[in-house]
């Protein structure tokens, strides 16, 4: 079984009126079945309100399925006894780094998690050191989190999760508030963690460029899983993505525009190098 396995996962937000009668039901996740391999880098796309975040919150048992089953590392998330170990297996990083910082020093921030689960002091320091090194923030260990840039703060937030030694990290739009350099720092860090430590990465994003190097992409719409495949197969379907309120990387869009003008150029180009190679034919 993969690190994450969903079988017909459905989640309904039920709204009730003052008497407690059901007022309306919104199906936020609708019959989603998927399996994510351990050690892979997976991206989840979908417009605002498509159910991505609701799905993500299931992955570390912040929400439980209304119907269907979700297993994280073989543990059923709807079993209350599993909650604590699921949260240690799958860590979550949110959009706004400022909402995730509580300590006065970077190293205390990173040590906070392990301390709370009763890790011995010596090991806490080892974990703080190795996780800060893993995200390239060790030099800032004595700094105050509020003196850091957005990208640095978000990397500290990632280090805090890494210190919990999770097998899987879920990131819900971690770059939405960052400048271009900060975005690059965060995405590079995630790839490094994935390659060197073998951590499974599940990245939710609205920036198509960040998805190019993922192993696999899921696209959600109205709570359903509507597309899945490698970035190359997903981004070949420019029109379908635009219908889903999404987009493609600018290189791919340029290729699409050239095709529309009648240039016989192949589908699914994701990088400038590929484009240059392909264009050689027309020189």
């Amino acid at each position: 079984m993969g690190i994450v396995k969903a079988d017909k996962l459905t989640f309904e937000y039920i709204r009730r009126d003052e008497e407690g009668n059901v007022d309306s039901i919104t199906t936020a996740v609708d019959n989603v079945s998927l399996e994510i391999k351990e050690g892979s880098f997976v991206a989840v796309l979908g417009h605002n309100g498509s159910g991505k975040s609701t799905f993500a919150k299931h992955l570390n048992a912040l929400l439980y399925p209304t119907e269907g089953t979700l297993w994280v590392d073989g543990m059923d998330t709807s079993e209350e006894n599993n909650t604590m170990s699921i949260r240690q297996t799958a860590g979550m990083v949110f959009q706004n780094p400022d909402n995730q910082m509580i300590c006065t020093l970077v190293e205390e921030e990173v040590g906070f998690g392990p301390e709370n689960i009763g890790v011995p002091t010596d090991e806490i320091w080892q974990r703080v050191e190795s996780s800060l090194k893993a995200v390239g923030m060790y030099a800032f260990r004595k700094a105050s989190p509020n003196k850091l840039s957005g990208g640095q703060k978000q990397r500290v937030a990632i280090a805090s999760i890494v210190a919990m030694k999770p097998k899987c990290i879920i990131l819900d739009e971690p770059t939405a508030m960052l400048d271009p350099a900060g975005r690059k720092e965060v995405i590079d860090t995630l790839h490094l963690l994935n390659k060197q430590e073998g951590v499974t990465i599940i990245l939710i994003t609205h920036y198509m460029e960040e998805v190019i190097d993922a192993d696999y992409v899921y696209v959600m719409d109205e709570g359903k899983l509507v597309m899945q495949g490698t970035p190359r197969t997903i981004f070949s379907q420019v029109e379908h993505l635009k219908e889903l309120r999404l987009d493609v990387p600018q290189v791919t869009e340029l290729v699409y525009e050239l095709q529309q003008s009648g240039l016989p150029i192949k589908d699914g180009i994701l990088t400038t190098e590929e484009l240059l190679q392909e264009l050689e034919r027309f020189r």
Partner: peptide
């Protein structure tokens, strides 16, 4: 001030 932060491409 960053009116499109957190929005999907179409929303932007």
């Amino acid at each position: 001030d960053e009116p499109t932060a957190g929005l999907d491409p179409k929303g932007r």
